[in-house]
Design a protein around this nucleic acid. Sequence first.
DNA 1: CAGTATCCGGTGCGATACTG
DNA 2: CAGTATCGCACCGGATACTG
Lengths: 163, 163
Amino acid sequence: MTHEGGEPWDRDAWDIDPDSVVLTLQALAPHSTGLIMREAFYGTRRFDDFLRRTGMSPGVLSARLRDLVAQELLVKVPYKEPGTRERAEYRLTEKGRDLVPTMVAMIGWADRWLTGERKPTMSLRHSGCGAPVEAVLKCGHGHEIHAAREIVASPGPGATRLS
Amino acid sequence: MTHEGGEPWDRDAWDIDPDSVVLTLQALAPHSTGLIMREAFYGTRRFDDFLRRTGMSPGVLSARLRDLVAQELLVKVPYKEPGTRERAEYRLTEKGRDLVPTMVAMIGWADRWLTGERKPTMSLRHSGCGAPVEAVLKCGHGHEIHAAREIVASPGPGATRLS
DNA sequence: CAGTATCCGGTGCGATACTG
DNA sequence: CAGTATCGCACCGGATACTG
């Protein structure tokens, strides 16, 4: 993953913003947003569960949930259990669930580099076979990619050429 | 990717922090850090190139590069071209390069959901075969995973049981 | 070229109190 | 239960000026 080593394009001749890496990072920022999404992936749906499990203040949680709903990563769904009053829950949308590969890749990286003494706090396994889940890279022809240098980056159709 | 639907553990009985998702997000936060890493992946190495291509101020860039070196995502390497004075460049470490699957997953997500009218600004291809690169999920037994519900999350060895 | 120093404005967030 | 309102602080980041 580099543009050096003989690629035929000049980095400074292209404006590549908004870059997709940054867009995704922004979707999960600020920090509290990522925390909420983590909880959502692990199954949390109700306001007070998010509150207790993330430890953030109600004002912050409220604001971030609003952002996430606006981004359509979560949907607010009213529901009513028989005999109780109506409540609200926040569910992952398809767009939100599609962040799973990103989350799994992040978990893999942190588990490889950041745990040190400590072991991973969460374990992801394939339902049925029980083997650990990981994110891997492959290309459209089905080749698995194991090194960054097997990837060539170049300006995409949305990049604008400068001057 | 859920703990609901009959899994035999109680989310509130476990402290799963520091969670790997959050750890990785923290490694790439604040925002300027992610921007720098993006540039690094696209091949940028020198201070003034980062400066111009990211548009941030020298103070901010300096602080973030320091963080990234401290985190060992980048290394500062002095080098000398014949006839010029010594300069410094920042290179990705193995730990930094290992974020590639995460980056690719993020790029895929943003390209699927965020582009709207606009097309992706960067294109990643397999060197040699030229096919587009993507992040996919698979398990240790080699099964490809296509739906979030094929993944079961449970507390890992590093989680602490409460009370 | 590769930074450091300073100022200053915005915002993210924790704590706390209150409401339907 | 599911939020909203307010306050004060810390940090992030833009602009600008300066240095080896």
